[in-house]
Design a protein around this nucleic acid. Structure first.
Length: 278
DNA sequence: AGTTGATGGAGAG
DNA sequence: TCTCCCTCAACTA
């Protein structure tokens, strides 16, 4: 489930499990073999996330830059009696006695310098999961753009860490139509979205899933059956095409925007046109 | 056994 | 805007 919360959670896990340890670094699949050989047996210092980018720092100012992409996973296991043989396509394996981590399916897994890391970080917009993030930087872009707010929220140079689930859900929670141009939002609406993302994503880091449904709309509160699918936590509209909205009962709609699926409730999230006409 | 789709993004045209 | 890449589970047949 790689949105920003997944990477921040992973950074914490890697730091806790491997920070300060000398680690075995390998690439059972082979595609990271040369770089792994350079790092093998050296000390892993810590890991840090910027939006969806993850950097694992080794002694000597060397970093492994990881981006999970659409379906990458990084499975970290501690307190195992024995390190198991790798299963499937394991691009990167970190191991020390009693613990290991397996990276699969990532779009990026590369050994980079501090300068290369800094260049990636410099391109990223503010990350709601970082205490030093400045939401005004994102607003400067959004307030001047005619692009849909749904596109802007997913643009990692505008805002770092939001993916398709948080996009759909935060727009629902603020009753904003995803196709509304960024420049038609009021600054108060943007601040509310940002503050909400800070809370929602921090909760995602803690729980490891994406839950966005307010207490008054949960299955228990509404007397409906709990969700049975497995793509995250309890949500309002994400991948609920055609199903009844948890708030108004209308059918959730979908549309492809920029190659990604958009989900919204037409009644709870009126278009900017109909809003202006009222 | 083969096809599809997914919480992402780069690069081509 | 389209195509491609990475992996694997969940479909269809």
């Amino acid at each position: 489930m790689p949105e920003g919360h997944t990477l921040h959670r992973l950074a914490g896990e890697l730091t806790t499990v491997f920070g300060g340890h000398q680690v075995q670094v390998g690439s059972p699949q082979g595609r990271f073999a040369d770089s792994a050989a350079h790092l093998d047996g050296t000390r892993l210092l810590d890991a840090e996330a910027w939006g969806k980018q993850l950097f694992v720092r080794f002694e000597g100012e060397r970093f492994v830059h990881v981006h999970l992409g659409l379906y990458g996973t990084f499975e970290v296991r501690a307190d195992v009696p024995e390190i198991p043989l790798p299963i499937g396509q394991v691009r990167l394996r970190l191991a020390r006695p009693g613990a290991y981590g397996d990276l699969r399916g990532a779009t990026t897994c590369a050994l980079v310098t501090a300068a290369e890391r800094a260049a990636v970080v410099a391109k990223a917009g503010p990350d709601p999961l970082r205490a030093d993030a400045d939401p005004d930087r994102a607003w400067a872009r959004i307030s001047r753009s005619s692009a849909p707010i749904g596109t802007l929220l997913m643009d990692q140079t505008v805002l770092a860490g939001v993916g398709n689930v948080y996009r759909a859900e935060v727009l629902f929670r603020h009753r904003i139509h995803p196709l509304r141009p960024g420049r038609t939002l009021r600054v108060s609406q943007w601040r509310a979205i940002w503050d909400d993302l800070v809370v929602l994503m921090a909760e995602g880091v803690r729980s490891g899933r994406i839950d966005t449904v307010r207490p008054e709309h949960t299955p228990e509160a509404m007397g409906r059956a709990p969700r049975v699918d497995d793509h995250g936590g309890e949500v309002y509209v994400y991948r609920r095409t055609g199903q009844p909205c948890h708030v108004c009962g209308g059918a959730v709609r979908t549309e492809v925007l920029g190659g990604r699926n958009l989900f919204w409730c037409p009644r709870c999230q009126p278009t900017f046109r109909s809003r202006a006409a009222r």
